[in-house]
Amino acid sequence: MSGVELFQIWLVAFATLALFSFMYKDNPFYRVAEHVFTGLSAGYYIGLTWDTIIVTQLWNPMMSGRWWLFIPGILSLLMFTRLSPRFSWVSRTSLAFVMGVTAGGALVFQLHGLVLPQIQSTMMPLWGSEGVGTLLLTIIMVIGVISTLIYFYYSKEHKGVLGMTARVGIWFIMISFGAHFGYTVMGRVSLLIGRVQFLIEDWIGSFGQIG
């Protein structure tokens, strides 16, 4: 193992342990790591924005003849007027363009790409389905979707039939949240295992290489 590789491993180990140290209590090592991490993450976006947006999407196409891209270029620059309280209103036009295009796309996508396909997948025939298992699954799906939608319907007080259906919805939601919670915990634990594995195998393993 070369000196550079050893340095890299110790640097990563320091950063990892410094961040983990917060679990004991806030301390200078954690604050150093935290501030370096914040700075690096911001710096990461400088590189990303420069390379994938300014150069690839704006400058190169403009130099190849798509001169009209100066319009989004100007709109981008206007966005920076937000930093000045006096001229921040100028950035509204750029923001309005972003909001308008996003809203126009979302209007079609949300209805055509999400609502209709989800309704279509829920409205499956009960009779003629393949076996009791599929029939049961279809019934669970229909009851689950309707009761969940009703639980999130706040325009009328949840009383009577509406209240009972909303109550069924809560049970379904609890099952789903429980499943999601289980998945999230497993995801985070696997990341933790990765970090602990690095500390044990790479970092502690490098002790023998010193000296």
Partner: peptide, 10 residues
């Protein structure tokens, strides 16, 4: 089943 139904509703 149940999880997918809730996700669809949401």
């Amino acid at each position: 089943g149940a999880n997918m139904a809730v996700q669809r509703g949401i």
